[in-house]
């Protein structure tokens, strides 16, 4: 930006006519249907618009058109807040972007009215507006995108935690029902969860149930074996259960060998585990009354 003796037209317009820009801007936003979705109230929108314009006027008076300058910080923070809340409220990216970009037409109108016959000044003003609003719009979108990504990452973490519970079946017997595809990252979480639980429950046997694992390829099998080896190093034996017929066929065709005790169902594995800890399940001879079976 070349230094000028006179402040650019746009600076003058923004600092002097901010109040007259506001109704035009809100009208345009309404016309675009921002209120139709019902996610934001009219008064809230008006407050947001007024604050943005106020901060913009202050910033532009202090720092000109350099959006990266310090006086723009409050405005950038406000736009970040607005955009973050829009991301959470479920606004679409274009709805969020048009909040900032719809400030352009009112500004162009104001330039048109203020330029007089000086076309060169008007052209420069239009360029300035475009550059300024684009920079602010891009900032808004960046924050919007980042907040959406944060939401996705959080959900992924929650899914990972939800889908790897370690269940205590009996004193010293743990079960790990796996659901979903086993990739390296999940295996890591599964392994950590299982090993922590082995220590906490002083478990001797862990049953890894893969009924809910849709496919088992060589990599998945390797991950399973790693988990089994790590549990063994902690002094606990593992039993793999819930291998479905198709998966058993695939594994044999692939040449994958699980050198661990494996059972078809969780029930079979549990029976083995109970025998290993010196227990057995026997039918009651005579039932006098309903009594809880420990």
């Amino acid at each position: 930006m070349t230094p000028r003796s006179q402040p650019p037209l746009i600076v003058k317009i923004l600092s002097e006519q901010a109040s007259s820009l506001l109704p035009k801007w809100t009208a345009l936003l309404k016309q675009n249907g921002i209120l139709a979705t019902g996610r934001i109230k009219e008064t809230e929108l008006a407050t947001q618009c007024r604050t943005v314009l106020d901060l913009l006027a202050t910033a532009i008076a202090a720092a000109g058109l350099d959006v990266a300058a310090a006086p723009y910080q409050p405005l950038r923070d406000l736009l970040a807040d607005i955009s973050r809340s829009r991301a959470i409220q479920g606004f679409s990216p274009s709805e969020t972007a048009s909040f900032v970009f719809s400030l352009k037409p009112p500004l162009f109108e104001a330039i048109d009215a203020a330029k007089g016959s000086d076309d060169a000044t008007a052209l420069r003003a239009v360029q300035d507006v475009t550059r300024l609003i684009d920079a602010l719009g891009l900032h808004t979108m960046e924050v919007f995108q980042k907040s959406r990504e944060e939401v996705i990452v959080r959900q992924q973490r929650e899914i990972a935690e939800l889908s790897t519970p370690v269940v205590k079946l009996w004193e010293g017997v743990l079960a790990l029902p796996l659901i979903g595809t086993l990739d390296s990252q999940r295996t890591q979480i599964v392994m950590e969860n299982l090993l922590e639980s082995i220590v906490a429950e002083r478990a001797e046997i862990a049953i890894i149930d893969i009924t809910g694992v849709p496919t088992v390829d060589t990599l998945t099998a390797q991950h399973l074996l790693k988990t089994v080896s790590a549990a063994r190093l902690m002094g606990a034996d593992c039993i793999i259960s819930g291998i479905r017929p198709q998966i058993a066929q695939t594994m044999v065709h692939l040449g994958v060998e699980l050198n661990v005790v494996s059972k078809a169902t969780l029930a079979d594995a549990f029976a083995v585990a109970l025998r290993r800890v010196g227990r057995t399940v026997a039918p009651l001879k005579t039932v006098h009354r309903q009594q809880p079976v420990g």
Partner: peptide, 30 residues
């Protein structure tokens, strides 16, 4: 070998050392 920590167990497995010749237990008592 007794009392191996979870993090240590994971490290050893990742290193490819599953100590197949060694017996393991959770703690000294076991």
């Amino acid at each position: 070998v007794v009392g191996m920590r979870p993090a240590v167990a994971i490290t050893l497995v990742e290193l490819g050392l599953s100590l197949t010749g060694v017996k393991t237990a959770l703690d000294v008592e076991r």
